[in-house]
Amino acid sequence: MGEREYLEYYALNRRGVSGWFRMRGYTIERKLYALHRITGILIVLFMLPHFYSTGWHPGIWWDALLGIIVTFHVANGVRLTLLELLGAGIGKPLLVKKPFQRPVSIEGRQRYLLALTVLLFIVLAVIWSYYAVIVKPLMGG
């Protein structure tokens, strides 16, 4: 870094990419956001060789890991679709605020949706791992 850039870096005071993955001290939604982004990038990285030499797979145990990545992205994607597009579970604006009221969008029904998402993720990941580790080797693939 030259002197000019150095000064600009501190004067602008932007977090940059590290701001995306800064999770400590914030709620769990922020962690899910960061993981959604990371898993999305990893899936794109997997897609490239999978397309290039048609049907490429990294091997049994890596397949199970891939399953965890994909099923997380799917489960969280379902949650995001419900929340962002349909506004389901996001709650209504309040007319009366209690002192030290927690935000409705974090504390309300959205948290049940989040628990369901985690449940869906676990179920899907177990099914995928079962196929990847047990069924597929039996098929001789």
Binding site: L80, E84, L94, R102, S105, I106
Partner: peptide, 19 residues
């Protein structure tokens, strides 16, 4: 916006911008 909900988390007036 990708619903990281940090805005609602830190808002001092409980405005809940994420919602």
């Amino acid at each position: 916006c990708h619903f990281a909900a940090s805005c609602s988390d830190v808002c001092p007036k409980y405005v809940d911008p994420a919602q």
